[in-house]
């Protein structure tokens, strides 16, 4: 029983890495296009995270079910099924987005549905086929949290700099850089966000090794 619990804790720990150490957007760099272009206001950021969540989690769950299909079914049929599910999930995502902010779809344009085809589930779906459905659900949730953290961070920074507003409400920022909303600044902000994340992860890594070395010393 204890050994089985350890594996569960280890798996949980491995999935949690997906959020910070292996962040899908900033570290492995998947699904970059919407994160770079789409996220210039917080509303857009929320919209992107919503669609990403609505698409990736069901697809990964479906992938784990597809794993049970007989071996004869070729792999490309499974990816086609996942893609169709992703397309169908767009419709409820669109309705939900209309509730949050009326003109969300127009401001995002084609990037709203481009998120449906992101490379995260394309890469993760074959891996999830061997997993049990609960684990792939958990992985989907971790991926979505990782993606949304990054996109929300980038979009808040860009909105603050570009329009000086937070979720549409003006803030007391004296300086406005209208160009931060453009595409080139999106690249640079995401690049610096990736660098800052790596810097923080390195520093936490150093601190953790220090603590572990301290503990070893106390125990010895």
């Amino acid at each position: 029983m204890r050994q089985e619990q350890n594996t569960v804790k280890k798996n949980l720990r491995k999935e949690l890495d997906l959020i910070f150490v292996q962040n899908p957007v900033l570290v492995t760099g998947l699904a970059l296009a919407p994160a770079v272009v789409g996220s210039f206001t917080m509303k857009n950021g929320v919209g992107l995270c919503l669609v990403f969540g609505m698409v990736t989690i069901p697809v990964l769950v479906l992938a784990s079910f597809l794993g049970m299909l007989p071996e004869k079914v070729p792999q490309y049929v499974r990816t086609m099924a996942c893609a169709l599910l992703a397309a169908l999930m767009l419709i409820p995502a669109r309705m939900l987005a209309a509730q949050i902010a009326p003109n969300l779809f127009d401001s995002l344009g084609m990037y709203f549905s481009a998120v449906a085809l992101n490379t995260v589930w394309l890469v993760r779906a074959p891996l999830c086929q061997e997993k049990k459905t609960l684990w792939s659900l958990w992985e989907g949730v971790c991926l979505t949290v990782g993606f949304s953290l990054c996109v929300m961070a980038v979009s808040t920074v860009r909105e603050l700099l570009a329009y000086g507003t937070l979720w549409g409400k003006a803030t007391a920022l004296p300086l406005k850089f209208p160009a931060v909303a453009y595409v080139f600044a999106g690249f640079i902000v995401v690049g610096t966000a990736a660098a800052v994340l790596r810097w923080c992860v390195d520093r936490c890594h150093d601190i953790l090794t220090l603590i572990r070395r301290q503990q070893k010393k106390w125990r010895a």
Binding site: F177, P178, F184
Partner: peptide, 11 residues
């Protein structure tokens, strides 16, 4: 040049 390009893009 990049600084001027940024300023020209912004304002």
């Amino acid at each position: 040049a990049a600084g001027f390009a940024f300023a020209a893009a912004c304002w």
